[in-house]
């Protein structure tokens, strides 16, 4: 039996979980505390992957990341490699697809903070970015950890977007959910069962952790 889909899924989930705070945390901070025109527009754009069918999102990304798309072109110029049907391509797709799942709990955690703590920090002379690192982040840790767990569990089960952007290249972009689908199609139920049983406890434990962290937040 080929274990590589499980390894690729785990790699994708870990990479997504580690990289997504770089985009999600500032976005959530702006959405939680920013007062500016067009905020609801940004909110809607960030949340869009949550409501779009994964195939629609995947198709859009396939066009953008394809050899003639702007992202694909940029990537090709920078690395000399194609973006679609590569691990980097599915990682970027996974980051975009998971963005709302990271931003929403982070935003909720930030909004729960007493605004006076931020004001006190400003009066004490700290810039907005210093306040973010020294006050906001340390006081939102359970919320941030819950967001990380949610993203991890969610990226472990990705299917539609990854299939559209990555195809199903063994050892490169064939993740566990795609391998399970293909195994069922080929009537290899034992393989499908094995991979499913490998994913279920990990996802279950992630959800348990989210519940515990949410309980801690309240």
């Amino acid at each position: 039996m080929d274990f590589s889909p499980l390894i690729i899924s785990a790699k994708l989930a870990v990479a997504t979980t580690l990289l997504i705070p770089l985009v999600a945390a500032p976005t959530a901070y702006i959405l939680a505390f920013g007062r500016f025109r067009g905020k609801s527009l940004i909110d809607a754009v960030v949340s869009l992957p949550m409501v779009l069918p994964p195939t629609v999102l995947g198709f859009g990304l396939l066009i953008l990341m394809g050899p003639n798309g702007p992202l694909g072109n940029l990537w090709n110029d920078a690395t000399g490699e194609r973006m679609v049907f590569s691990f980097s391509g599915i990682l970027l797709a996974s980051l975009i697809y998971n963005l709302p799942f990271a931003v929403q709990p982070m935003r909720a955690a930030f909004e729960k903070l007493d605004i006076r703590l931020l004001e006190n920090s400003a009066v004490l002379g700290l810039s907005a970015s210093a306040t973010f690192f020294r006050v906001v982040l340390p006081n939102s840790l359970p919320g941030l950890a819950a967001a990380a767990m949610l993203v991890f569990a969610h990226s472990l089960g990705e299917f539609g977007v990854i299939l559209m952007v990555g195809g199903s290249i063994p050892g490169s972009t064939k993740v566990a959910s795609i391998a399970i689908y293909e195994a069922v199609e080929a009537m290899r139920y034992q393989d499908a069962m094995f991979m499913s049983l490998a994913i279920i406890p990990v996802s279950f434990l992630a959800l348990l952790a989210i519940n515990r962290l949410n309980g801690k937040r309240q």
Binding site: R116, N120, A122, V123, N139
Partner: peptide, 20 residues
């Protein structure tokens, strides 16, 4: 001038110590 540039001390009505 921003609050950061004023260099003043403020004690609020309720406790605003950093809980962490």
């Amino acid at each position: 001038a921003t609050p950061q540039k004023r260099g003043l001390g403020l004690v609020f009505q309720e406790y605003t110590l950093f809980p962490h």
